[in-house]
Design a protein around this nucleic acid. Structure first.
Lengths: 252, 252
DNA sequence: AATTGTGAACGTATTCACAGCG
DNA sequence: CGCTGTGAATACGTTCACAATT
């Protein structure tokens, strides 16, 4: 993993875009769109204001944008429209991406109906499952097909992204099938690690893992409360309940 | 953001654990548990094998584990049981964490029924919404309460983690309410940036954003196909369909 | 003999701070 | 004058490679 993606082979035309920057560009795009249809069309925005809205520092934002080229106006700011278009272009957000969703349990059904996908150029073009109780049923106006048909269906529909929302035990097999169906981008909601060829990108979204990370920070906070140091002016008014005793760790 | 978390104030006892390491520790724990009840109890595991299962390189794994202390046996490996316990302890996984879930639309309901939470020490102790059509109904054996009651309910139930699964427009308000209710850890499924006090940790899980990142890599791949360079031995057999024409970018 | 634990080297990402420019 | 764009400085994260240890 190089951390750098994209063009620039030797005498290439385009500077490579760092992975961390790509993730933030998606965020900036979201923020720009939200700003644009929220507070009716501000034409120009400064790096400072945009950075604030995106929750990052402005130098970072400017450096991120500089990978796209020079689309700002010195002394003024960035034209919202131009910037939105440039980021969209780089991210491939100007064209629709067809998505196959595998696994229509609780989570899968929720994803199938999630407006956030359709809202931004992602079209769920195929639903798959293996449960006979599900195959053939309709979810969001689309028929659930058997996973065995994934190869034909995905190719016929031009699906390029797969979303795995199956139980953990099935995820690797599903991934193999998606890869065989020509899919090179996978969003994986199943816990556990997927093994895929190098040219396939997997983004894991593991809810229990995220909670676990939060829990760690909770524990740290509790631990700190036991070694207090100058509790002083913290939390001047509402929102904190000093009556709650610090819960001490109890071993498994 | 320092990237370093945890103790070690001046003469502290415990080395600070890098943020990146914390995230992987959660992963290792998951993998250890999966290995343990999958292939019945292997007693000892080497860094090499565990790293493989977790999809990381073994030096990184060893360095990560070294932040916990020296729990390995040189020339042998790590005792699975000990390691599992140590990681659990550090992550706070040995005690239950109570979770409040706000927003019981599609996604919220799916989360309420998600076994991956309960499976690992996370107990959903409260459900909140503001929609009168939802408040009072039951989901997974638990009554949905009005968000106005969050303060009392969360404190009474000892909730420490909040999960936001509302529409984007409501998320900031919900976050404010959770923070006022004493919650310091938030998992946010709503798109957009939350503003919270410094001592509150938010982990954003933005599905559309993840897809957008995948889409970027898709676009890069397509672009590369247009500047081919030695197409040669790529993809020797199945899985690739050369008849599909490279889709060229079309502007918005 | 094998595998851990870790300094040192390297690479990536963030931040600073200011020259360049509209 | 103000804000962008970016080199230089710093901080963070990963990998190498080997001495320590069982």
């Amino acid at each position: 993993m190089t951390g750098q993606v994209g063009g620039a082979r030797e005498g290439g035309r385009q500077r490579a875009i760092p992975e961390a920057t790509v993730a933030r560009l998606a965020l900036y795009l979201q923020v720009l769109i939200a700003l644009d249809d929220g507070t009716a069309g501000q034409e120009i925005i400064s790096s400072e204001r945009l950075a604030q809205s995106a929750g990052v520092n402005s130098a970072k934002l400017r450096k991120d944008l500089s990978y796209l080229g020079s689309y700002g106006i010195r002394g003024v700011g960035y034209d919202v429209r131009t910037l939105t278009e440039e980021i969209s272009r780089i991210l491939g957000a100007h064209r629709a991406h067809r998505v196959a969703l595998v696994g229509l349990g609780n989570l899968g059904q929720a994803l199938a109906g999630y407006s956030g996908f359709a809202g931004r150029g992602f079209v769920i073009s195929a639903l798959f499952d293996v449960d006979p109780g599900r195959v053939g049923r309709e979810v969001g106006g689309r028929v659930i097909r058997h996973l065995d048909e994934a190869g034909q269906v995905c190719r016929a529909a031009g699906v390029s992204i797969g979303v795995i929302a199956t139980p953990a035990g099935a995820a690797q097999q599903v991934a193999d099938i998606l890869v065989a169906a020509g899919i090179r981008s996978i969003l994986n909601f199943a816990p556990g690690v997927l093994t895929v060829p190098d040219d396939v990108e997997v983004r894991p979204v593991d809810l229990a893992l995220e909670l676990q990370i939060l829990a760690f920070h909770e524990s740290r906070r509790d631990a700190e409360r036991l070694v207090p140091r100058v509790i002083a002016e913290t939390e001047p008014a509402a929102g904190f309940h000093p009556a709650e005793p610090a819960r001490v760790a109890v071993t498994t």
